[in-house]
Amino acid sequence: MSPMQLYICGAGGVGREALDTALAAALPVTAFLDDARAGEQVRGLPVLRPDEAAAGEYLVGIAAPAARARFALLLERRGLRPATLVHPRAAIAPETVLAAGCLVQANAYVSSSVTLGPHAQVHYNATIGHDTVLDARATVYPGANISGNVHLCAGATVGSNAVVLQGLTVGPDAFVGAGAVVTRDVPAGTTVVGAPARPLRPPTRD
Rank of each mutant, 00 (worst) to 15 (best):
H151F: 11
R77Q: 15
R70E: 12
H123Q: 14
T139W: 04
R77E: 13
F71A: 12
P118L: 02
F175I: 05
L103S: 06
L85F: 13
H151M: 10
A72S: 10
G117C: 03
V122P: 06
T139R: 02
T169C: 02
G155L: 00
A144W: 05
V158L: 07
P172R: 04
I146G: 06
G129H: 11
T169A: 08
V133A: 09
C153N: 11
R137W: 00
L74F: 12
D131M: 13
P172N: 01
Q121K: 00
L80K: 06
T157D: 00
G167F: 03
N107L: 09
A136P: 04
Y124M: 12
A108Y: 10
R89Q: 12
V110G: 03
L85C: 07
Q166S: 05
E76R: 15
Y109R: 08
I92G: 11
L75G: 09
T157N: 00
V158C: 02
L116W: 12
G171N: 03
G171V: 02
S112V: 14
N149V: 10
E76F: 03
A72K: 05
L73T: 08
I92F: 11
C153P: 02
N107W: 08
N125Y: 11
A136I: 02
V140A: 09
N107I: 04
Q166G: 03
H130S: 14
R68N: 06
G148L: 10
A136W: 01
C102F: 06
R78H: 14
G79F: 06
P142H: 07
A126D: 07
Y141K: 05
T115I: 15
H123E: 15
D131Q: 14
G155N: 00
V86S: 04
G167L: 01
V110A: 04
Y141H: 15
V170C: 03
A162C: 09
R77S: 09
H119D: 11
Y109W: 13
Q121G: 05
F71Y: 13
G117H: 02
H130F: 07
L165T: 14
P172D: 00
A156E: 01
A138E: 01
